[in-house]
Write a protein that binds this DNA or RNA. Structure first.
Length: 549
RNA sequence: GGCCCGUUGGUCAAGCGGUUAAGACACCGCCCUUUCACGGCGGUAACGGGAGUUCGACUCUCCCACGGGUCACCA
């Protein structure tokens, strides 16, 4: 077989060789130990938790080592592409504090190792494709989809391993005339790799997360170039990561199955193998069994879910960090106020298995994160959220920022801040009672509550109520109402002998609380009254009075 | 079916031949307390099964079971 002639026939337009590529993309000038890695999504327009998990891992490893993090767009599958997806992806990731040093941008790119969109790298792949043909390591295959399916059918019947390999690789050793004729007939072709591997050969490989794994050599003649001349993932991965001088390939572990192919290609092309780190999938509880979290069934997988629910980005960031490196929690306790970026992230601490998505944990982290924010920051984030998802609420918030901030400030700061809400949607519910238009009685008075006592409490409170009272004076008044109605003013006395009173000051407080907040539970009632102000307090108490008749 | 990965309490997980097998979330109880939230104290709860190796296995080896991934001109 005259490989040189075949190569010219297949790639007449390719004049450059691998050495030209080496010159164009020289090794990076980085200090020892600097990691170069990337996020390499396909632009489907759907940004999900998996994107954060993978890109955050890469980003941390790169930037902690003084290396380079870049964004490469894997747009080799034209069918899946969605316009505007790249910009949306970059925005989303930036929102979650994941920034790139080089690579694709919404409308262009930065960096010296581009292009960073694979479809624009066609000529580069063809240089290596031609080079492989020249060496007899690749050949054209003219099988149609139907023919390939027939082969698989046959293999299933014979219980043979599926795939285009060995004796089933019908174009692998075709006479040159057949190839030439097919080419002349203008039949579409793909370029396949001529595998010299055997599934009988196994060797050990070290993955940075999984540890030592067993590799069985690949013997399938995989497709390098599709019939439109665009490379498959495998070929693009090997060429790009070599030329872009990637030192660490960090990706989801569904790729581990094709690792033998990738290693094989790196060797065939004479490239140095990068380090690999395969991340376990995020699982979800489905009934009583675990399964991989899915974009179709699980809304929590899409990042839009967190935005809509109003999870602070810091909370999602910390949650993901907790999943990736569980010692992050210990670190956080030891460094409660340090930026999360200071955490020493480590691939070695990552669990080789997939971890389960835990909504309760996210919620807990979120409450803690929010409890440490300032009222100004919360107000700003809440307003931004409301503008997008609850416009009427946004209007109410903007109408009186100081009022809103006063509500947000209840129990904030100090050593033991309240943790009432972890999301902006929860905060909106929490704030509801402060906005008269949406004020509703949610909880009724309990069965045993004496209607006359309630009315008497509200009336007497109204008579003595003075917004200027200090909290001590204010509560003393409530205690005195309790005493006058036969309720214990001191809880200790009440608990010692409950039968001696009609109830306690806790009941009296509850009478007021329901009228004031519509609920049996609320934040500190003194603070609530201070914020509501004299007018609203009177209105609500009077409204309840007239309701009770 | 072939190949590969995984398996410590309900969940996230420390552990890396000798531990009373951490901690966090969730749950339960008590305390604090005018309710709630916070906080404090305490509690329930785990090494998938079986053979080895070893004086000694959660830790090493093998087999099995279960869960997951992958076998495309998708990434």
């Amino acid at each position: 077989m005259d490989y040189k002639y075949l190569a010219e026939l297949l790639f007449p337009h390719v004049t450059l060789g691998p050495e030209d590529m080496e010159k164009r993309y020289p090794p990076r000038n980085l200090p020892e130990g600097a990691v170069v890695s990337r996020h390499a999504p396909s632009p489907t327009g759907y940004v999900h938790l998996g994107n954060i998990v993978q890109s955050l891992t890469s980003e941390r490893v790169c930037h902690q080592s003084g290396g380079v993090m870049y964004l490469r767009i894997e747009d080799t599958d034209t069918k899946r592409e969605v316009k505007g997806a790249v910009g949306a992806l970059i925005d989303s990731l930036a929102h979650y504090k994941i920034k790139f040093d080089e690579g694709a941008t919404a409308d262009g790119e930065i960096g010296a190792y581009g292009p960073y969109r694979q479809r624009q790298r066609r000529d580069i792949y063809h240089v290596y494709a031609k080079h492989l043909v020249l060496q007899g390591k690749a050949y054209p295959c003219f099988c149609t989809a139907g023919e390939l399916e027939a082969i698989r059918e046959h293999q299933r019947a014979e219980k043979a391993n599926l795939g285009y390999w060995g004796p089933w690789a019908v174009w692998r050793d075709r006479p040159f005339e057949d190839i030439e004729n097919a080419l002349k007939a203008d039949r579409p072709w793909v370029l396949r790799f001529r595998s010299s591997g055997s599934i009988k050969n196994k060797y050990k490989f070290y993955d940075l997360i999984k540890g030592e794994i067993d590799i069985t050599e690949n013997e399938i003649d995989i497709v390098l170039l599709k019939s439109d001349g665009i490379p498959t993932y495998h070929f693009a991965h090997v060429v790009d990561d070599h030329l872009m001088r990637t030192t660490h390939v960090i990706r989801a572990d569904e790729w581990i199955a094709s690792l033998p192919v990738h290693i094989q290609l790196f060797r065939a092309l004479g490239f140095k193998l990068p380090e690999y780190a395969h991340i376990g999938p995020i699982m979800i509880m489905d009934g009583s069994s675990k399964r991989k979290i899915s974009k179709r069934k699980d809304p929590q997988f899409g990042l839009i879910y967190y935005k809509k629910s109003g999870y602070p980005v810091e909370a999602v960031y910390e949650y993901v960090l907790t999943i990736l490196n569980s010692n992050f929690e210990d670190w956080r306790r030891a460094n409660p106020d340090a930026p999360a970026e200071k955490f020493p992230f480590s691939l070695r601490k990552m669990n080789p298995a997939g971890s389960l998505f835990d909504a309760a944990k996210l919620s807990d982290i979120s409450k803690n994160v929010v409890s440490k924010m300032t009222a100004d920051k919360i107000y700003a984030d809440l307003l931004e959220w409301a503008k997008e998802f609850e416009p009427p609420f946004a209007t109410a918030l903007s109408a009186d920022p100081e009022y809103a901030k006063a509500i947000i400030s209840i129990g904030r700061g100090g050593k033991k801040p309240r943790k009432d809400y972890g999301t902006w949607a929860e905060l909106r519910e929490y704030m509801r009672l402060f906005y008269y238009d949406t004020f509703t009685i949610v909880d009724k008075y309990p069965e045993g509550a004496d209607k006359d006592d309630i009315k008497a409490t509200l009336k007497r409170f109204l008579e003595t109520y003075d917004p200027a009272d200090e909290q001590g004076v204010w509560f003393a008044k409530i205690k005195s109402i309790a005493s006058s109605l036969g309720y214990a003013a001191e809880m200790k006395e009440y608990k010692a002998n409950p039968g001696a009173w009609r109830g306690s000051v806790a009941d009296i407080s509850m009478f007021l609380r329901v009228a004031l907040t519509g609920k049996l539970s609320s934040p500190d009632m003194y603070a609530v009254m201070q914020i509501l102000g004299k007018t609203r307090v009177r209105q609500r108490l009077e409204a309840m009075l007239s309701r009770l008749g």
